[in-house]
Amino acid sequence: MDGMKTPVALLLAHPDDEAFLAAALCRRLAERGEPAVLLTATRGDAGKRGSELAAALGRRLGEIREQELADAAAILGIREVGHLGYPDGRLAEADEREAVERAAQWLAVRRPSTLVTFPPDGGNGHPDHRAISRIGTRLVRERRVPGLDRLVYIGSETLAQEGRKEALALDTKAFWPAKAAALAAHRSQRDTISAYFGDLSEAPEAWRFERFYLAWEDGREWP
C-alpha cells in the first residue's frame, strides 16, 4: 500500500453491504478520481441462510464471498478492500476495543477524512450492523485515525425521524448498470438479492436512492 490519501473509507459488516447500500456512492467517487476504500468486519461465511447455492458451498463460503466482494469492488471502482475476519453473525461478541484498534490500524495507512458506516440501529437491526456502527463511531469520535474527522451514517428511517442532516442522496438510476453488476457479482447471495432487487433489470423504487447522513464532523455531533 502506497499510503495515498483517500477521501472516503467504508466500514461495513459483510460482503455485499457495499452493493446494497453504497454502490452509487462508490461509483461516483471513482468517476471523480477519488476512489473509496472498504474494510469489512466479516467474510460473510454465515450467508448460507440467504441462498441454496451458498448452503451448498458450505465451509468454502467465506473464501468465495471474499472473491465475490473483490469482483464487486472492481466494478464499483473501490481502490482497496480489507477484512477484519470476525465470525459472521457474531460481531457483537467480539472485543470491541480490539476491533476498534484493528480497524484504526488499517485505516491509518489509507488516511481517509470521512468514514461511512451503518447507523446505530444497523438500518435493519442486524446485530453485526449495529456492532460495526459502534466500532466506526468510536473510531471517529475518539480520533483514533489522524485526519479522520467526519462520520457519515448510511440512511435509515430512524435517522430521518431524528432530524439528522442528510449529507447526500444519490439516485441509483444514474448508476444502475454498475450497481446491478456489483449485486450480481455476489453470486452466492442471489436469492436474497433477488428478494430485494428483483431481476436487476431496473432500480426498484423502494431502493432507488442511496442516502447518507452526517453524524459527526470536526468534533461536533449532528444534529
Rank of each mutant, 00 (worst) to 15 (best):
D2G: 15
M4I: 04
M4P: 01
T6I: 07
P7I: 01
V8R: 03
V8E: 04
H14F: 05
P15T: 07
D16H: 10
E18Q: 09
E18N: 11
A19W: 10
A23Q: 12
C26F: 07
R27G: 09
R28G: 05
L29P: 06
G33C: 14
L39H: 06
T40P: 05
T40Q: 04
A41V: 06
R43M: 05
D45T: 03
G47A: 14
E52T: 07
G58V: 02
R59S: 15
L61Y: 02
E66T: 02
E66S: 11
E68M: 02
I78F: 12
L84S: 11
Y86C: 08
D88R: 04
L91C: 06
A92R: 05
A92N: 05
A92D: 11
A92P: 00
A94E: 15
V100N: 08
A103Y: 10
W106A: 13
R110E: 09
S113G: 14
T117V: 07
P120D: 07
P120E: 13
N124W: 14
G125R: 14
G125I: 04
H126L: 09
H126Q: 10
I132T: 10
T137N: 10
R138P: 02
L139I: 01
R143D: 13
V145N: 13
R150F: 00
Y153D: 06
Q161V: 13
E162C: 01
G163E: 08
R164S: 06
E166K: 14
A169K: 14
K173F: 08
A174E: 15
A174G: 14
P177W: 10
A178S: 10
A178R: 12
H186E: 03
R190T: 02
D191E: 15
T192K: 12
T192A: 14
Y196K: 11
D199Y: 09
L200E: 06
L200P: 11
S201N: 15
E202V: 00
A203S: 14
A206Y: 11
A206V: 06
W207C: 04
Y213M: 05
Y213R: 02
D218N: 15
R220F: 08
E221P: 03
W222Q: 08
